[in-house]
Design a protein around this nucleic acid. Structure first.
Length: 411
DNA sequence: GTCAATTCACATGAAAGAGACCACGGTCTAGTG
DNA sequence: CTAGACCGTGGTCTCTTTCATGTGAATTGACGA
């Protein structure tokens, strides 16, 4: 390292330190899992949830509760807030919060149970034990503690989608197997129609009470942002109009407060990086771009190689000017890509699934169409902006799945 | 011209295999007293 | 005698393959007017 680079690095760091102190009072206040003391426009839900959970203070079992609402409507924050307060009142109440969407939890019944047992303070191996045994461990744990347990299952719809509702059935009936403890379940779901495809018995026991979280409108989002901005920034760092813009953009996406906060946070980070002394509206625009871009690139990066190879073949076809890309086309290009990069060739069946996965991720758009006599297939289209495409090409190139020449592969 | 049968090119499902990982218990080995 | 190394067994997890079945409309071909 030369002296000069050392010097510039030093400058970067010291600038950063200075700006940080000038800019942010408390950066965390803009993070989406920050739990503020005051949550605007959610009084009803708080009161409701509070009164349902109140019986636990006297050692009784609370009704099971189901919370609905789109992403970023405050379900998680409110739940954490209320249960936190409850815990302050009576520390013997044990709150177990589990986000079912976390990779290491959601995939199988075993993992969920292991995580539950772990939350209760028992060590469980990541794999190796029979599932029944883990269930028993969890039960023992619960019973020997003699407490009132509130079990919060966040994003419960993801769980059921993966492993079915059998486990919920067991959980809802868990009280019958317990002598000393009581368990109440709070289920949180983004999907309002979620309970429709639940087993009837599970549905009735799980949603004894229901609370709905409607989306925020733009004005409400503004209140939230203002409150958080107050906490996060020093005085008058944010230009007028910035908060309004963030709120408006997020309101377009079903009133997602998380999105609004992300925008504001990203905008301020951009302002910071550009060395501005205030957050401008222009920064919000850039933030919106960057958030989308980052999301997509991150997704592609974390995909397994096979999936990337499939994406690469789609990109090749698109750049070769092919219209109406079908599964068969993708597969034959994919075969060649595998051959040239030494990757194992998967069956068409599998590739078809990979295409469906890419569709789920929103990177491509795959629509099943029937072409009558000429079969039935997926019509595949890329759903990437120009800049995103460029960066993804970069990622794929790193893995030798794509080369510079666009001509190759065109047909 | 009409209508049912055919046909294509996959989609979609279910089940099962391969190869990881891991815990647990038993056996072997070397170090210690 | 004991701690640790080293199996073998039995369990789960993820990614795949194999086998089977499903599907929607363009096309075909028989049929009747």
């Amino acid at each position: 390292m030369t002296k000069q680079t050392q010097q510039t690095l030093h400058n970067i760091f010291s600038n950063y330190m200075q700006e940080k102190t000038n800019f942010f009072k408390n950066r965390d206040a803009l993070s989406s899992d920050y739990i503020p003391d005051d949550t605007p426009h959610r009084d009803d839900q708080i009161k409701n949830l509070g009164s349902i959970l109140a019986p636990t203070l006297r050692g009784a079992k609370a009704s099971n509760i189901f919370l609905y609402g789109k992403t970023g409507t405050g379900k998680t924050v409110i739940t954490k807030y209320v249960t936190g307060e409850l815990n302050k009142m009576n520390e013997s109440i044990k709150i177990v919060y589990i986000n079912c969407k976390m990779k290491r939890v959601s995939d199988t019944e075993y993992r969920l149970l292991a995580e539950l047992a772990r939350e209760m303070g028992r060590k469980v191996p990541a794999t190796g034990l029979p599932t029944v045994q883990v269930y028993q461990m969890f039960l023992d744990c619960l019973d020997e503690k003699k407490t009132n347990v509130i079990l919060v299952l966040d994003e419960i719809d993801a769980l059921v989608k993966k492993i079915g509702d059998g486990i919920l059935y067991n959980l809802t009936r868990i009280n019958q197997n317990l002598k000393n403890s009581r368990v109440s379940i709070i289920g949180i779901s983004n999907d309002t129609s979620f309970t429709d495809d639940l087993d009837a018995r599970v549905r009735s026991t799980l949603s004894e009470e229901e609370i709905i979280f409607p989306p925020y409108n733009a004005a409400q989002l503004q209140d939230i942002l203002k409150q958080r901005a107050e906490l996060a920034f020093h005085k008058s760092v944010v230009e007028p109009g910035v908060i309004e813009k963030c709120a408006a953009l997020a309101a377009q996406e079903h009133g997602d407060a998380r999105r609004a906060l992300d925008l504001l946070r990203m905008a301020s980070e951009i302002a910071e990086r550009l060395g501005k002394n205030r957050v401008t509206i222009d920064c919000v625009d850039r933030a919106e771009d960057k958030l989308d871009l980052d999301r997509v690139v991150e997704i592609v990066k974390t995909q397994p190689k096979q999936s990337q190879a499939v994406l690469a073949s789609i990109i090749r076809l698109v750049e070769g000017g092919k219209k109406n890309i079908e599964t068969g086309d993708v597969f034959s290009v994919y075969e060649r890509i595998c051959a040239s990069s030494g990757l194992k060739v998967l069956t068409q069946r599998r590739v078809s699934d990979l295409v469906a996965e890419l569709d789920m991720l929103g990177i491509i758009n795959a629509k099943v169409v029937s072409k009558g006599r000429y079969g039935r297939t997926k019509e595949i289209r890329l759903q990437l902006g120009k800049r995103a495409l460029e960066r993804i090409r970069g990622v794929l190139k790193e893995n030798y799945l794509i080369r510079d020449s666009i001509m190759e592969g065109a047909k």
